[in-house]
């Protein structure tokens, strides 16, 4: 698998696509996340598909503006979802920060390694979400629901990463 594999992704022609397309995908996934499929098992879970393009940006984007735009998208999710303002802002920025911190290791890793890295950061992010909900008066979350959401998010990693990996493959060609 070639997903997320290249480190030389900053060719001028592709730079815009690599920096803008994942952000657009984050926006789309925030909206799509609200479509109900009427399945009992997924109703109360948040698959957080938007975390995959954020992970991609954390590994590849070198623009200073990227974390700011990611935080703004988190705040946008708070407004859309009805969660306290700043809740997803904190989580998504933390996710970006944690993934970016492991950039060098993850870029050298095999696909399975990156998947594992993504899953680890997702679980950590949802653990923080659970803890924030636990200390706030106006929020409550069940631990297993948060962890199941992180698990579901990790399951979505391969198909979305294939889509994002195509950006890099095109550039290499």
């Amino acid at each position: 698998m070639n997903e997320f594999s290249s480190t030389n992704v900053q060719a001028p022609g592709q730079q815009l696509l690599i920096n803008i397309f994942p952000l657009f995908l984050v926006f789309i996934f925030i909206l799509i996340g609200h479509v109900s499929f009427g399945l009992e098992i997924t109703t109360h879970l948040d698959p957080a598909l938007f975390l995959v393009p954020v992970f991609f940006l954390a590994l590849h984007s070198k623009r200073n503006l990227t974390p700011v735009l990611i935080m703004l998208l988190g705040l946008f999710k708070d407004i859309i979802d009805g969660t306290p303002f700043g809740f997803w802002g904190v989580l998504i920025t933390f996710f970006y920060f944690a993934a970016h911190g492991q950039q060098q290791v993850l870029l050298r890793a095999e696909f399975r390694g990156r998947w594992l890295g993504y899953a680890a950061v997702s679980f950590l992010t949802f653990l923080i979400a659970y803890l924030i909900a636990a200390v706030r008066d106006d929020m409550l979350s069940l631990f297993w629901l948060s962890m199941a959401s992180a698990g579901l998010s990790a399951l979505w990693f391969p198909p979305i990463s294939i889509l994002l990996g195509m950006l890099i493959i095109d550039e290499q060609e």
Partner: peptide, 10 residues
């Protein structure tokens, strides 16, 4: 839109 998640139910 179904905004049900571990944190909100709207």
């Amino acid at each position: 839109a179904d905004l049900q998640s571990p944190f909100v139910r709207t």
